[in-house]
Design a binder for these strands. Structure first.
Lengths: 345, 345
DNA sequence: CTGAAAGCGCTAACAA
DNA sequence: TTGTTAGCGCTTTCAG
């Protein structure tokens, strides 16, 4: 089923069919147009995107690299982005990096060879050295959830929520409730957004006259990380922290999955949430408001974020210089639910 | 960066480079081979998959259509499938159908035009009429989580868990605990797996001498469905059911997300789980064991399922006749956790 | 063992 | 308004 078949069926040349497909069909002889239309629909013809792309170089697919779509946060982001892409005629190639720089690089190179010219990279790794060769070749990359660094190559745009502010919001909320022994729980602090969240946590503490260095923090050993493990980590952290001599009365978890792990850990010790322990999350994933108790968390405006990321990517792909290196940071919002309350006594 | 550049750098013809890439590099003059290898690595050359596919017709990507990756179940499945695909050199194109047959068809047609020749369709719609034209053209389709129908086109393979058995397992477990007033809660019963689960529920009841027609069931109004709403539905259902005159002492939820909704509904009414209400789910998503209380549910062996789906797809794509219409049904496993116990009194 | 030539399906000047 | 031509980057006979 090629353009030739259509041409033959419509008694025109292939290029006329092509003109119909690409040029302005309006400016054709109505009769020819009708014939072509009929032929196309009768034959159920669709132009081969492969051939088309080889010829024009115009990509038809964008890439998405996430740590793991098994994490509902990334799953939701992927769904949003796919919707944005589709609305613009693009398809979405999905890659799970497990936050491994090597895999990220390999993926991105494969994509380049695949003819993909734009990718949304949800890396949050501080170092993006591994993708600059591709950037140089002309691949448009928009990073997501990653604070821009001075050392970043120019032309790398980033879309993310302000993680510092988000964590501050959560911590300040806890402080306002009267908590003073607040712990920070995270996986390894190897990603930028996690570090930023930790920074926000510290900032809020300082502002309240507390010493962040005194605040218990629990960080997973290096290399432990996988998105599917983060909940397990939260659980261990909670168990460990709550059995200390002066256990925290509140925990700021690095994300919702981690917070759920904290829930599980607290429960295994018979602690009541929020009665004996307040917990905050980050992300506001689907299940946050369904949890027991519903989770107080920092919401990421995923729909807006993915839309911005896609817009930025399109601009970068079309070589729009105004898109060059323009990062966008959105302000997150605290969603207060039932997992936080005043500290006991 | 084309094959010509490499050829030039290595002082050979393009076709020799191609031979090196595809034919047996062993059977070449070691010197030429070395030169080509050097040229390739120096230039960082990767063959264009687009051109390659146009020429050979060999696809490099497979498609995945899921209702929504925002649902952790599908997200997890997508991650597994991507892994399987990658191990075989394939990439994964992701599509979210929202269970809309029209979108499914459109996606599948787009994919065909994109040069994709194999797709895993997570449809569970009873009717697959909308994709038979593509099947006829030669697209390999493996459906997932969908019981084969007599009316199915031949050549359509399906991989799924035995949903009837799964629901029976859950219901029988509840029965064994002493429950007699057990409700079934679902979204609209428009999908095959949901119907199958309902059937399993009824079967278990009958075997225990109970009349399924007497069992309270709650089904969402037609068209309400979106995967993101199912939890909300579960919540409404629980609230409604628990306020009846003779409320159920146990609820079989159609999946885990729905069960979490039931949790939320019960909680809003101040009911204790499992003290006053036992709840079972289906799927065993990541968060099932982290919930409060941990959810008793029916586990789908997702890793095995996705592996089987991919294997089947590969076989179908390579025209292996033994793959033709061979469906595989795996037995699910009941995972007993803390959301179920003996009924009150 | 290596190269020349043809063509996958399509588009885009350019010519008619 | 429509058709002719060339070529995107690659593979694959078939000669040399």
């Amino acid at each position: 089923m090629t353009i030739h078949d259509v041409a033959e069926a419509a008694n025109v040349s292939p290029s006329t069919v092509s003109n119909f497909l690409n040029g302005r069909p309006e400016r054709m002889n109505p009769k020819t147009r009708r014939r072509i239309e009929n032929a196309i629909s009768k034959l159920g013809y669709r132009p081969s995107k492969v051939a088309r792309q080889l010829r024009t170089g115009h990509p038809t697919t964008i890439g998405l690299v996430v740590p793991s779509v098994a994490n509902p946060f990334w799953g939701t982001f992927a769904r949003h982005l796919e919707r944005n892409a589709l609305a613009d005629g693009f398809h979405l190639l999905l890659c799970n990096s497990q936050r491994d720089p090597g895999r990220e690089r390999e993926y991105v190179e494969q994509m380049w060879a695949d003819g993909i010219r734009g990718v949304v990279l949800c890396s949050s790794l501080p170092d993006v050295e591994h993708v600059v060769p591709l950037l140089d070749k002309g691949l448009a990359i928009v990073t997501f959830d990653r604070t821009p660094q001075a050392s970043d190559p120019p032309g790398l745009a980033n879309i993310s929520v302000d993680n510092v502010v988000g964590a501050e919001l959560a911590t300040t909320h806890l402080l306002g409730l009267g908590h003073t022994r607040i712990a920070f729980v995270s996986g390894t602090l190897d990603s930028m957004n996690r570090r930023a969240r930790y920074r926000g946590f510290c900032l809020a503490l300082e502002r309240a006259g507390l010493d962040p260095a005194q605040a218990p923090t629990w960080e997973a050993p290096e290399g432990t990380y996988g998105d599917r493990d983060i909940a397990e980590l939260g659980k261990q952290a909670a168990i460990e922290l709550l059995q200390r001599e002066h256990p925290p009365t509140a925990i700021v978890a690095v994300n919702d999955l981690c917070a759920f792990g904290v829930f599980a850990g607290a429960r295994s010790l018979g602690r009541d949430i929020p009665g004996q322990l307040s917990v905050t999350g980050f992300d506001d994933i689907v299940l946050a408001d369904l949890a027991t108790p519903p989770l107080t968390t920092v919401r990421q405006p995923l729909s807006d974020l993915s839309e911005a990321a896609f817009a930025q990517l399109r601009a970068a792909m079309s070589g729009d210089p105004s898109a060059h290196g323009r990062s966008l940071t959105m302000r997150p919002e605290l969603v207060v639910r039932a997992s936080t309350s005043a500290p006991p006594d």
